[in-house]
Design a binder for these strands. Structure first.
Length: 696
DNA sequence: AGCACGCCGACT
DNA sequence: GTCGGCGTGCTC
């Protein structure tokens, strides 16, 4: 008796190979089993997807025999395979690409024997797990949210302001689950690696170190394999991780938490461009696991999808659980708008803001100033001939980093020492234009050089951004310095606005947030509002500290548009008002969440070649059923049109129906593969489809 | 994606 | 005369 086994292997999307490759086997291989199979001249890891019994008689084609079956490991279950299959289909990628990316990288290199040995070693330690009860009393809002969570099916949108105690709700929900069903598993996702350690600590404290494993790209390969195996075997109760964790194999999954669900990092931006938040909701429904999406500023998609009260059928499918109040007495910080139109021209820091920071210094409190631009200045320019520090490989300026006197391209990494004189005309007068965090740090240093702290010492200014935290452990040590009070004024990018609890900060300032108000990206206001709300949440987290100081926590915003509805809503901490306004605009303009989008992008040596491919692709789509219900916009260059000498162009597709858009995309895929072999496809370096794109 | 094959410039 | 550049093509 012989079998044909269909195996998902890592076939790249461009290869136009089928979703699965078929191999011969003398025995049936269980779907979901990990196998090693020959592919070309090498042997690769694959996941058995289906087994077909071959009729006796001559085989149509001679199949290569399957290699080793890694049967020390339980096969990936059907629910997991369904999730992978759905993600592959929805995001227009191959099955194998998603499946293999979802497995720990080390599994690819391990032989069957090595894996068996590893598993034997693992089994020896026995994890006893005890849930330590929590002494903290719940607020009325938390109690209400939890009881509705227990009573209803969800999915739930936990709309809780910063400091309202969302994490405690997650912990209780997990605790209740494990009390009811000790062998159950919960998946908890956070947007960034930086945020895992403190959450991990809280979960381990509550549920025991052995019950919790982490899964994110900052871990070493052996660590990731160990965590993955613990999840897959069911030994781990709680898996805590970043977006990749949505694909963790968890046979007893009953609960999924997506914290800060609005965060853009849940959308993968390269390779398979999936949204871990959306997949989490899909997975929850498929596996009957309850899903909680938590945020103080939900994505407009989730907000639109949620209904405010029980039994209210208006709105969407999500149950909205609101926790508007901060725990304890800490009031939300007062928002102060500085009208920059009334300031002297070229003001960087208004006098009123400087005064407020000075008062904080005098009282021994901390301030945080953020600016979304790292480096010293975004451009270096020649006053004489107009030369600017363009990157020779990208359509962008190289940023001036004063610290090491370099010009660095933030897109391709091209770095050179700053020229002494203008490379065009030899003029020595080349000057930085605009400012980044480095220059802001320097500027603040000058402004406060003469100021003394209460004990007579000099004011201490620190900066946290991607440059200052490049080294391993640098972020942790810099955060620790802020926590221990070694810093008076902290300067940084949005990195400092997310998640970290700075208890002694009583002032947060956004220096120049206006860029996002009128940018071409329709999601920019949503991101700005969320960022400012989160930043405001950094101030005065420690209510006891703030009131003991007699201080008021404040969020300062310098803007040329103080009447902008975004700021008006922010001033009142009124996310619902902001969301309503944005949703009305989106509805009127026929944009998400009222329409569904996809991008086709092409990269080539020249813009013409890239656009010609998109043009041909557009024409090819005419023939597809449903294409009349999909608006196809003309091909345009990307905002940054050239990166590392590659020209990039894209076209947008939009439809009121997700299903129709999906159907068109699915039908398009083979046509796009064919196009590559036509004259219009020659010279295209790569093309890719981005479903539900985040930035367009 | 890998990893081959395949046809043109600077080296022992 | 070879070593090696990366252009094109294939992988059940």
């Amino acid at each position: 008796m012989s079998w044909r086994i269909d195996v998902a292997v890592q076939t790249p999307a461009h290869s136009a190979l089928g979703d699965v490759l078929s191999y011969a086997s003398g025995v049936r291989v269980t779907p979901g089993a990990l196998v090693r199979v020959p592919l070309g001249r090498r042997e690769v890891l694959g996941v058995a997807w289906a087994a077909h019994q071959e009729d006796a008689g001559p085989a149509a084609v001679e199949l290569k025999p399957i290699g080793a079956v890694l049967d020390a490991l339980a096969p990936l279950d059907e629910a997991w395979r369904d999730l992978v299959a759905f993600a592959a289909r929805y995001y227009q990628r191959s099955l194998g690409e998603i499946a293999l990316a979802a497995l720990p990288p080390q599994l690819r290199d391990l032989s069957a024997v090595q894996l068996a040995r590893r598993l034997k070693r693992k089994r020896s330690d026995s994890p006893p797990g005890g849930v330590s009860p929590c002494a903290v009393a719940l607020s009325a809002e938390q109690t209400e949210a939890l009881s509705r969570f227990e009573a209803e099916a969800g999915p739930f949108l936990l709309f809780g302001s910063t400091g309202s105690g969302k994490t405690e709700v997650y912990l209780r929900a997990v605790a209740a689950l494990l009390a009811r069903e000790p062998q159950a598993q919960a998946l908890v996702m956070v947007p960034e690696i930086n945020l895992t350690p403190q959450l991990e600590a809280r979960f381990k404290e509550r549920f025991g170190a052995d019950s919790v494993v982490s899964l994110h790209s900052g871990m070493t390969n052996p660590q990731r394999l160990a965590s993955w195996l613990a999840a897959h075997s069911g030994a781990a109760r709680i898996v805590l991780g970043t977006r990749m964790a949505v694909f963790a194999s968890m046979p007893a999954l009953r609960l999924i938490v997506v914290d800060e669900e609005h965060d853009p990092s849940y959308k993968q931006q390269e390779g398979a461009r999936y949204s871990a938040r959306d997949l989490a909701v899909w997975r929850g429904r498929r596996e009957s696991a309850k899903v909680i999406l938590g945020s103080a500023t939900p994505s407009l998609e989730s907000w639109h999808q949620s209904r405010p009260a029980a039994g209210d059928d208006a709105g969407g499918r999500y149950v909205r659980l609101s926790m508007p109040s901060r725990i304890g007495t800490g009031a939300l910080p007062r928002v102060r708008l500085v009208d920059m139109n009334l300031q002297p021209p070229k003001t960087v820091l208004s006098a009123a803001l400087l005064d407020a920071i000075g008062q904080r210094i005098a009282r021994g409190e901390q301030s945080m100033v953020f600016l979304n631009r790292r480096g010293y200045a975004p451009v270096l320019a020649c006053a004489d001939c107009g030369w600017k520090s363009e990157c020779p490989h990208c359509s962008a300026y190289r940023v001036f980093h004063k610290i090491d006197r370099t010009l660095r391209c933030h897109h391709c990494g091209f770095t050179e020492r700053v020229p002494r004189a203008c490379p065009e005309c030899g003029n020595l007068d080349i000057a930085p234009v605009g400012r980044g965090t480095e220059r802001l740090e320097e500027h603040l240093g000058e402004l406060f050089a003469a100021v003394r702290r209460p004990d007579g010492s000099a004011v201490r200014i620190a900066r946290i951004d991607a440059d200052s935290t490049r080294k391993q452990g640098a972020l942790e040590s810099q955060l620790a310095a802020v926590h221990s009070g070694e810093v008076d004024v902290l300067v940084g990018t949005q990195m400092i606005a997310k998640g970290h609890d700075f208890r002694r900060i009583t002032l947060v300032a956004a220096i120049n947030p206006d860029g996002a108000l009128f940018s071409g990206d329709f999601r920019a206001p949503e991101r700005l509002f969320s960022l400012l709300m989160q930043s405001a949440g950094r101030a005065g987290r420690d209510a006891a500290y703030v009131s003991a100081q007699g201080a008021t926590a404040e969020m300062w915003i310098q803007t040329h548009h103080p009447q902008h509805p975004l700021f008006v809503a922010l001033k009142r901490h009124d996310y619902p008002a902001f969301a309503q306004g944005e949703l009305e605009d989106r509805a009127a303009a026929g944009m998400p969440p009222f329409a569904f989008q996809a991008l086709l992008r092409a990269d080539a040596r020249t813009q013409e070649v890239a656009q010609a491919f998109l043009g041909a692709a557009n024409a090819a789509a005419d023939a597809l059923a449903g294409s009349d219900q999909v608006t196809r916009y003309p091909a345009v260059p990307l905002a940054i049109q050239r990166v590392a000498n590659v020209e990039r162009a894209q076209m947008l597709l939009e439809s009121a129906s997700r299903a129709v858009l999906q159907r068109v995309l699915a039908g398009w895929q083979p046509l796009l593969h064919e196009l590559r072999r036509t004259p219009e496809g020659k010279g295209v370096i790569r093309w890719l489809v981005d479903v539900d794109p985040h930035s367009i």
